[in-house]
Design a protein around this nucleic acid. Structure first.
Length: 643
DNA sequence: CCGCGGAGTGTTTTT
DNA sequence: CACTCCGCGG
């Protein structure tokens, strides 16, 4: 038995050992939240609780993996604890109990870009002028629909609050939503929101809820400030019967409002679970006091928060964070590269250094510079690898084998064939969804086109592939490989950079060989594959600095952090400026960025705008200019700069 | 009806 | 710069 008191301070100890009943933990940045979960899991297991009856819900798949593996180092039984995201847990339950909510369990998951395509499909045929149709982007419609679902608010309210300029289209968007919902049911599709919706429905069905609640008797939810209304409801339903639930969060770090998250969940938790124990973790074990002073000044400018101040529990004092001004992005990048080398010479290896930014594109100049200097880096956030078109093309073939009603997948696959465009693919696949299985499709509607058309030879090759990968019960990896063989030649004419794309697919192929079930492979691609699928997601990859969006850096820490691009309109992003709550969310994001640093923090700005036509000079971010943080920073200007 | 090339555009964050 | 849209030639 491990002596928890040796590893935890009194509030952490309380959080790890209050086993029964509801617990709310307000955990400031760097206050040892991960540690609390690690030891709480350990404590539960060592108190004799069956590991498989413990459930840990986290924000990313990786987060639960890290926490559970740390706990397992103390006691291997902890590896049996169930962990994952709300979505992955919902998926599992839905697969098992699909028919209780009127689905067959062979549903396909629509990732974000699939969902946008589907919405576009449903926007057709409705009464709206061509001009308006162009003006209303499909992604926007999808966002509005999704937001209305996640917040559980009517479309009108969302439009009024977030998209007032689209007020006149409310009716239209509601119609699209109706069509979209029907479309998904017909095609056996679930999008990300549906996984939560149907899971909640499942839990509202008491016999099923009882089964699930009987199995998972101890529940923990991490990053509770970034859960949305649906996830809050799900948490409640999961714990309603036994009330053994601990949620952990920090309202000052709520940064997913754009996805419908609300820190209201944290605020309302005591009301949902009367008599809950509230524990505050306030001592910070991560950063030096000067860094926390800067963070505190940002905290003090937040409206609408729990009162708090971060105090460092570290012994050494540390230097003040530095603010650096540059003429342009290249000068900035050069300076950062120099500084990285200097830090390394002084004992901070590259893997303990990180560059953070608001949006991925901000890092492009820096990436070029690092490449030039031979400093290797690991990129986090930004374009998701399995949403790139070559991955989606290949995966589409596997999808339609699993779910022959997957119209989007048929279209995607058919349009790869020479001579087939949107019209022809629509014509050919029109009858597909009437068929029950692949054999019915290849023998029936598909076979009509295999002679006499300019695309017939291509279609014949396609048909052979489909029959091949659906007929036998070959290994998932082998099926993947067959599609790969078929797709490779098509890729070479489609992409100039097919070389690197082939490499991506080689990586995926290796992953595919690890699966026994095609459905699991496909669902993991959609909901669980961690950052970039390349497999190098383990934090602190040897001798590499990390480049990351702040969103992706959530929960992590580095010795040295460069927070770049503090330009008004970039950070806070221009979109947010019209609306106070959005600016507040940007401010929380800034706070999250600052608090990732342990000992060295550098904030940078460059003045020249290199976005071609807009030749105005950049303005310093409002989060710094004439803000209280300025007095907490040591200000610097580079030598060759004319500031 | 397809596909290509050129013009235009707008550019978050992620399960 | 990467993706989308448009118009034209086949």
């Amino acid at each position: 038995m491990i002596d928890l008191k040796k590893h935890l301070n009194p509030s952490q100890f309380l959080a790890a050992t209050t086993i029964d009943g509801p617990v709310l933990v307000i955990a400031g940045a760097g206050s040892g939240k991960t540690r609390v979960i690690e030891y709480r899991v350990l404590n539960l297991v060592q108190s004799g609780i069956e590991p498989s009856s413990i459930l840990l819900l986290t924000f990313t798949r990786n987060a639960s993996r890290v926490m559970l593996s740390r706990a397992s180092n103390h006691d291997p039984r902890c590896a049996m604890v169930e962990g994952g995201t709300f979505h992955s847990f919902a998926y599992k339950a839905l697969k098992r109990y699909a028919n209780a909510v009127g689905f067959t369990n062979l549903f396909s998951i629509l990732d974000e870009s699939d969902a946008i395509d589907a919405v576009a499909k449903c926007s057709g045929g409705l009464d709206i002028s061509e001009k308006d149709r162009k003006f209303l982007k499909k992604g926007t419609i999808r966002s509005i629909i999704s937001m209305s679902i996640n917040k559980h608010e009517p479309i009108e309210d969302i439009i009024e609050k977030e998209y007032p300029h689209l007020a006149e289209y409310s009716e239209y968007i509601k119609n699209v939503k109706t069509k979209y919902v029907r479309y998904k049911t017909e095609k056996n599709y679930l999008d990300y929101d549906d996984m939560l919706i149907y899971f909640k429905k499942l839990l509202e069905n008491s016999p099923v809820r009882k089964l699930i609640a009987d199995k998972y008797k101890y529940i923990m939810v991490d990053e509770y400030q970034d859960t949305n209304k649906l996830q809050g409801d799900i948490s409640y339903l999961l714990a309603k019967d036994h009330k053994n639930i601990m949620v952990v969060g920090d309202d000052a770090q709520s940064i997913y409002g754009f996805r419908g998250a609300t820190h209201k969940n944290i605020m309302d938790f005591p009301a949902m679970f009367p008599g809950c124990t509230v524990i505050k973790l306030e001592e910070n074990y991560r950063s030096t006091q000067p860094i926390l002073d800067a963070a505190n000044s940002v905290l003090s400018e937040m409206t609408n928060k729990y009162e708090k101040r971060l105090v460092s529990g570290l012994k050494h004092k540390g230097a003040r964070p530095q603010m650096w001004f540059f003429n342009d992005a290249y000068e900035e990048a050069g300076w950062i590269a120099d500084k990285m080398n200097e830090l390394r010479r002084n004992g901070t290896p590259f893997e303990k250094q990180c560059v953070l930014f608001r949006s991925s594109y901000i890092s492009i100049a820096l990436q070029a510079e690092l490449n030039k200097r031979g400093i290797s880096y690991q990129l986090m956030g930004g374009m998701r690898f399995y949403e790139s078109s070559h991955v989606k093309d290949l995966v589409a073939h596997l999808k339609l084998v699993m779910n022959p009603k997957d119209e989007l997948a048929w279209h995607r696959a058919l349009e790869l064939i020479e001579g087939i465009g949107p019209r022809t693919s629509a014509k050919i696949s029109k009858d597909f969804i009437q068929e029950e299985n692949i054999a019915g499709i290849t023998k029936g509607p598909l076979s009509k086109y295999e002679k006499g058309f300019k695309y017939s030879s291509g279609l014949l090759r396609f048909k052979a592939l489909i029959e091949n990968i659906s007929a036998d019960n070959a290994k998932v990896g082998e099926r993947f490989e067959r599609v790969f063989d078929y797709y490779s030649p098509l890729m070479k004419s489609r992409f100039d950079d097919w070389n690197t794309r082939i490499n991506d697919l080689e990586t995926l192929k290796k992953i595919a060989y690890r699966y026994d079930s095609l459905q699991d492979l496909l669902s993991d691609f959609a909901i669980e594959l961690p950052d970039h699928g390349g497999g190098h997601h383990e934090a602190g990859h040897k001798n590499q600095v990390t480049l990351s969006t702040i969103h992706s850096a959530k929960g992590m820490e580095w010795e040295a952090v460069f927070l770049i691009g503090l330009i008004d309109g970039v950070f806070p992003v221009s979109f947010s400026l019209g609306d106070d709550e959005s600016v507040e969310e940007e401010r929380r994001l800034f706070y999250v960025g600052l608090t990732r640093a342990k000992t060295d923090l550098f904030i940078t700005f460059h003045r020249e705008n290199n976005r071609g036509y807009m030749s105005q000079l950049n303005k310093l971010s409002r989060f710094i200019d004439s803000s209280m943080i300025l007095s907490r920073l040591e200000q610097n200007v580079t030598v060759n700069s004319d500031w």
